[in-house]
Amino acid sequence: MAKSSDKSAKGKVTGSAGRFGCRYGRFVRKRVAEMEKISRAVHRCPRCDTESLQRKGTGIWGCRKCGYKFAGGAYQPETPGLRVALRAIERSGVVVEEKKQ
């Protein structure tokens, strides 16, 4: 028989979703914890290429180093749809210039 230390907790969710306790179900808490982990992480700035990009609000992202502010996904700066669109633009050969401030 296995010791209790060998077993892993099946439904235990720690981290930011721990504030919900036993409410809302295991998979909802797991999904919320994963989403908040991604949104609160520090991401790479598309302009200055440093890891200083933070979420300012829903879909608003700002770089702490260069001050670059742009609209992106609600919980991550680049959505999967944006990646597909950028890949299609890159393949077509269209040159997209960034607007200078």
Rank of each mutant, 00 (worst) to 15 (best):
A33W: 01
A9I: 03
K100P: 02
S8V: 12
G11Q: 08
M35I: 13
V84I: 12
R19M: 11
A88P: 01
G67N: 09
G15Q: 05
P80V: 04
V94W: 00
K99E: 15
K100G: 00
R26Y: 11
D49H: 11
K12S: 13
S92F: 01
K56N: 08
R23W: 05
Q76L: 03
E97M: 07
K30A: 14
G59T: 01
R19P: 00
E36T: 02
V32R: 06
E97W: 02
R26A: 09
G25M: 08
G72A: 08
E51G: 07
G21D: 07
R44P: 00
S92M: 10
E51P: 01
I89E: 00
Y24E: 07
K69P: 00
P46S: 09
A33E: 15
A71M: 06
D49F: 03
V95S: 06
A74E: 13
R64P: 00
R87I: 03
V96A: 01
Q54H: 12
V95C: 02
K10L: 13
A2S: 12
C48N: 04
W61R: 10
G59K: 07
A9D: 14
T50Q: 14
Y68H: 15
R64D: 10
Q76H: 05
E78S: 09
D6E: 15
F20Q: 07
L82K: 03
A88S: 10
R91T: 07
L82D: 03
